[in-house]
């Protein structure tokens, strides 16, 4: 494990990405606190104004400060990404570990379910869900989490199958530990590596998904905002106010970039044979 840490720290792209991500996350927490403009304050003297000393990233069509709105939006996007990933990890690990450990018919049934769900065009179901059950932020992260656990379940099951045959698990079993305890104490802790890698790569996917929904007008609603909403507003005003598109696009892209690099770095560090 320590070797993995050292290898990760030697990966320059991953370290820089971690740093950039930390800065963006910190700004999302701090900027809304200290900003001179609240989220929905209208500056009547600067409607759709280009970047200036007062408004560093310019303002939108309602005269609202874009610098402040981007970090408010970042809060939503990052929180949703993390929360939905957490949902996916919990469901995926529980499902995969159970299927792999119990085996037999139950395993077959559980994985067959995953196969069927896998073939569903999920984006459509999330869109339907958002349209028909209202654009609720909590519902959205549950929905995003619920569609992201399938890969996790497959990976975890595979790992569990190979762990199950190892001596320390058989020993725990022979000592009379109940199956639930074996899974919780011996299987799950040993799954941490692949789960961490996959979780890191799930966060950007969820953020992307959220932005896509918000972009289509189905996600986060006014007065709240997210990067997807800002990009959507920017895209419709890009001819007269390109800054409204460029700034949020840069933040979304940088964040997704950083998360992907960290995920790749983590995978290389934990599994050096592969690369």
């Amino acid at each position: 494990m320590r070797d993995a840490g050292v290898r990760l720290l030697r990966n320059r792209a991953a370290v820089v990405s971690g740093f950039v991500l930390a800065v963006i996350a910190a700004a999302c927490v701090l900027v809304p606190w200290f900003a001179p403009w609240p989220l929905d304050a209208v500056d009547w003297s600067a409607i759709q104004a280009p970047p200036s000393a007062d408004h560093w990233f310019g303002t939108d069509g309602n005269g609202r400060d874009l610098f402040v709105r981007i970090f408010y939006g970042g809060r939503i996007s990052l929180t949703l990404g993390l929360a939905a990933t957490l949902v996916a990890v919990v469901i995926g690990v529980a499902w995969g570990a159970t299927a792999g450990y119990v085996g037999g018919t139950i395993d077959g049934l559980m994985m067959r379910t995953v196969d069927v769900l896998y073939a569903l065009p999920f984006i459509f179901f999330v869109i339907l869900l958002m349209v028909f059950f209202g654009r609720d932020v909590v519902l959205m992260f549950v929905a995003l989490g619920a569609v992201s656990w399938l890969d996790m379940a497959r990976i975890v099951r595979g790992q569990t199958l190979s762990l199950k045959r190892q001596e320390f698990v058989r020993a725990a079993h022979a000592m009379g530990l109940r199956p639930v305890a074996v899974v919780a104490r011996h299987i799950v802790p040993n799954l941490l590596g692949p789960v961490a890698v996959f979780a890191t790569l799930t966060v950007p996917r969820v953020i992307l998904f959220e932005s896509l929904l918000s972009f289509l007008g189905l996600g986060v609603q006014e007065p709240m905002t997210s990067w997807g909403v800002l990009i959507s507003e920017g895209a419709s005003a890009m001819e007269s106010a390109p800054w409204m598109l460029l700034f949020p696009a840069v933040f979304l892209a940088t964040t997704l970039f950083a998360l992907n690099f960290i995920g790749d770095g983590l995978r290389d560090a934990l599994d050096p044979r592969d690369h």
Partner: peptide, 22 residues
Amino acid sequence: AMTGIAVPNFVIAPLLTLTLGV
């Protein structure tokens, strides 16, 4: 390639439109 994976197409599309189109 990393850029293509990280930047979603609903961001790429408006950016392309802005630069090449507008």
